[in-house]
Design a protein around this nucleic acid. Structure first.
Length: 799
DNA sequence: AGCACGCCGACT
DNA sequence: GTCGGCGTGCTC
């Protein structure tokens, strides 16, 4: 007897091990590992993933059979099944969550529970439940406890039936298609009978006679003026036969011209040949490709991918979330054409599903995508590239909290292929590994065509603010006027959305705060609301101070909206474009703004971080960073690294073509090393300085770290539980482990939950994994009291 | 997750 | 005496 081992869709530690189910005769031979199935689980039906098929089970009790199949083919291959097991352990999360993360959104299953009255009498006797319908959706939240017990009773007395309806959002698009049914002779005869003014019918007959073996899509026929009503008539008369054809949605909006490999300089050539030789010899080598902006990293990627393809293998290229702009995808597609699949968050569920299908079926050989694309079901991988490897979007913020780099390394080890980590400003972790020889360092120290780096000036805003209260320093506004006069373009960067403006009463100092979170509300002039960026709470902007009724309540701080207004006021003739979370929310608007600015239909582009990365505008000769320190102000050990990265990156935006660029960095900390060293783009000295800071502070990469966050609606309970965990950790870890906390988080209350955290820093703790697994297990029992524990292995920040 | 079983307070 | 509160454990 064949038995399926199933990871069921119930996120608890008890279900981290598979449950055994019998494979019924009617399904035998059809099931294989990686398929999803519907199984009985207690009184309910749920979905699960088959992870193995065995001929015996450890389980002593009676086995139930699988109810039905969700998939007709495996959606998770053997490699990814193994990866899920590793990842669950690595990230302290449940296997089921890892498996689900690997599938494109929209392929996830949802159950709808339905109540069905067994007779009209029963329906009419229970109007509160059925409201005259024979079948209703069951929604627990909508029923009173009285009604719930009533439903339970009806169920026990077998008067109603409960059904579980499975829904999957992503479905293939089917399109009607038609094939000739009659012989050409018969069709000719038909055309005699058709009225001469039935133009569409005549047209269709002619098409069928001219192309007797073609399959006509309805969409194609529509273009020729043959509507579905015509085809319906034709079908009735037996001219044609209707079938359904699967359509692949095409997320690539524009076609691209084919491009040829560029000539490499010596450094690029050296990098490409080392990577290619690792691919050829199936070496699981990790490369750190360090190259300043404009040094031609992308061409190295492209030629390494080409080599992997030439060996009949596939390639995966990962890019940061906001970088996946048409500019980059276009370059990849122009080289590799339709072999490229793209996976990113701007795709609709349907588009993502279709792209995933093209990968799973082996049609697509190159995948370009964001974080989650690291799970692309490519087989026979020959190369994995992670561009801008230091980028924070590679770490998933919620469960499973995986680091894309680590998943990529696991997959590369599985496939015996190289990984290329590329960056102008590598993370300290990666660079330190390269120095130790764990990774191989490849360098591209020169800008292509020997363009000079832009001239960077640092402006001390302490001095500026003593003179005036404008967001733009005198030097920067003079430079803007100058560029506007020369018809050159300008980028203004406002660091961080959180720096946006808030409301304050000038008489009593009252600041409106979120009722659910410990944070002040942010002003949004366009919607006329005060918003909380943590829980989404919104309220209207008050005209008078709610506390002292003064009318002198106004905004403080500088958001991108205010900046836009100020810039327009100062330079009334300039065409200004703003790009931030608010203006790019709509699908395609990000692209539209980039296109517009690229076509020089605007003079000034202002916005947040998202304009700093990956964009290439040759006409930009001036970049202004308005508040370089706001990242520095964060109470976190990575804030210097973040600041240096950002400043280096934006500076690279200026003067890429034949015009030399100029960069102004406005700051209140002109002497800070992250700002000083960004001025000269001196990564080497930054690395050395920052490593010393990390060493002295016992931070990564010198120490490994784990962050434990506990939260509950009751602050005292949260604190008490975290102290209990602290004691448990102290008792079970070595004396060498550094345990910090518990401390309330920077924003202690979010959505009426109180957050406390413990940080563990360690160099060698062989039992850590086992100890933390126990913490997690114990906390499961306490979850009923509202306590939640999250374990973040190697967190990006300590906040 | 959700449902059943089990042990203590206010009701016909 | 019982109905029902929700605290605990299990689901192949």
């Amino acid at each position: 007897m064949q038995i399926a081992q199933v990871i069921v869709d119930i996120p608890t530690s008890q279900t981290n091990n598979p449950f055994s189910y019998l494979i019924p005769d009617n399904l035998s031979g059809q099931v294989s590992p990686g398929m999803r199935v519907q199984v009985p689980f207690g009184p309910r039906k749920i979905t699960g993933f088959i992870v193995a098929i065995t001929d015996r089970s450890e389980f002593q009790g009676k086995l139930k059979p699988i109810s039905s199949l969700v998939d007709l083919y495996p959606v998770i291959n053997q490699e990814l099944l193994e990866l899920a097991t590793w990842m669950a352990g690595q990230t302290y999360s449940f296997k089921i969550n890892c498996l689900q993360t690997m599938l494109p959104g929209g392929m996830r299953t949802k159950f709808k529970k339905k109540l069905i009255a067994k007779s009209d009498q029963i329906r009419d006797d229970n109007p509160q439940i059925f409201a005259g319908q024979n079948e209703v959706d069951y929604d627990r939240a909508h029923y009173s406890s009285n009604l719930l017990s009533q439903i339970l009773n009806l169920q026990k007395t077998d008067q109603i039936k409960v059904e579980y309806e499975l829904t999957i959002h992503a479905k293939p698009v089917m399109m009607a298609a038609f094939k000739r049914q009659m012989t050409p002779e018969a069709l000719k005869a038909e055309s005699q009978h058709v009225r001469s003014n039935a133009i569409a019918q005549q047209h269709l007959l002619k098409l069928l006679l001219d192309h007797p073996d073609e399959q006509f899509l309805q969409s194609k026929l529509n273009q020729k003026g043959i509507s579905s009503s015509t085809t319906r008539v034709a079908e009735q008369r037996g001219w044609i036969k209707k079938t359904q054809v699967r359509q692949i949605r095409n997320p690539f909006l524009r076609s691209v011209k084919k491009s040829q490999p560029l000539k490499l300089n010596a450094d690029q050539q050296a990098a490409v040949s080392q990577i290619n030789s690792a691919t050829s010899t199936k070496q699981n080598q990790i490369f750190l490709l360090e190259g300043v902006t404009g040094s031609g990293k992308t061409e190295v990627y492209l030629q390494s991918i080409a080599h992997a393809l030439s060996l009949g293998r596939t390639a995966l290229m990962l890019v940061p979330e906001i970088t996946l702009t048409p500019q980059i995808v276009g370059r990849i597609r122009s080289r590799f054409g339709d072999q490229v699949a793209m996976l990113h968050s701007a795709l609709s569920n349907g588009e993502r599903f279709d792209e995933w299908q093209r990968i799973n079926s082996g049609q697509a050989k190159v995948v370009v995508g964001v974080r989650s694309a690291v799970f692309a079901p490519l087989t026979n991988l020959g190369l994995i590239i992670i561009d801008e490897e230091h980028d924070s979007s590679y770490k998933q913020a919620d469960n499973p909290r995986y680091q894309t780099r680590d998943v990529a390394k696991w997959r590369a080890a599985y496939h015996h292929c190289p990984v290329v980590l590329g960056s102008a400003t590598p993370s300290l972790e990666s660079r330190a590994r390269a120095m130790k020889g764990v990774y191989r360092l490849l360098r591209l120290p020169h800008r292509i065509n020997r363009h000079a780096l832009p001239h960077v000036s640092i402006i001390d805003m302490k001095i500026e603010m003593a003179k005036h209260h404008s967001a733009l320093s005198t030097a920067l506004s003079t430079a803007i006027s100058d560029r506007l006069a020369k018809h050159e373009q300008i980028i203004l960067l406002l660091n961080r959305r959180g720096y946006s403006s808030f409301l304050m009463c000038r008489d009593c100092g009252y600041v409106p705060r979120c009722p659910n979170c410990d944070i002040s509300l942010t002003m949004h002039k366009d919607t006329g609301t005060l918003d909380c960026h943590y829980c989404g709470h919104k309220e209207p902007i008050p005209r008078v101070c709610p506390q002292c009724h003064s009318k002198r309540i106004g905004h403080y701080g500088m958001g991108s909206q205010q900046l836009e207004e100020q810039v327009k006021e100062m330079f009334p003739t300039a065409r200004v474009l703003r790009m931030d979370v608010d203006t790019t929310r709509r699908k395609g608007s990000h692209e539209a703004i980039i296109d517009k600015f690229g076509a020089h239909k605007a003079d000034i582009l202002l916005g947040t971080q998202m304009i700093a990365k990956g964009l290439d505008f040759p006409e930009v000769t001036l970049v202004g960073v308005l508040n370089a320190d706001s990242a520095l102000a964060f109470p976190d050990f990575r804030s210097s690294e973040r600041t240096f990265e950002l400043l280096t990156q934006v500076s690279g935006r200026a003067g890429r073509a034949d015009k030399t660029g100029e960069v102004f960095i406005q700051t209140f900390n002109p002497d800070h090393y992250a700002i000083q060293l960004a001025q000269t783009q001196d990564y080497e000295r930054f690395y050395a300085t920052e490593m010393r800071v990390r060493h002295d502070g016992k931070y990564p990469p010198y120490y490994f770290t784990v962050k434990l966050t506990g939260s509950s609606p009751n602050e005292n309970q949260t604190a008490a539980e975290m102290y209990a965990i602290l004691n448990f950790l102290k008792a079970n870890l070595s004396k060498m482990a550094i345990i910090l906390g518990p401390t309330p988080k920077t924003i202690t209350r979010i959505n009426n939950r109180y957050y406390y955290q413990i940080i563990i820093k360690y160099q060698n703790e062989p039992h850590l994994k086992a100890v933390l697994d126990q913490v997690l297990l114990k906390s499961q029992k306490k979850q009923r009291h509202g306590l939640q524990i999250a374990i973040d292995n190697e967190p990006l920040d300590f906040m």
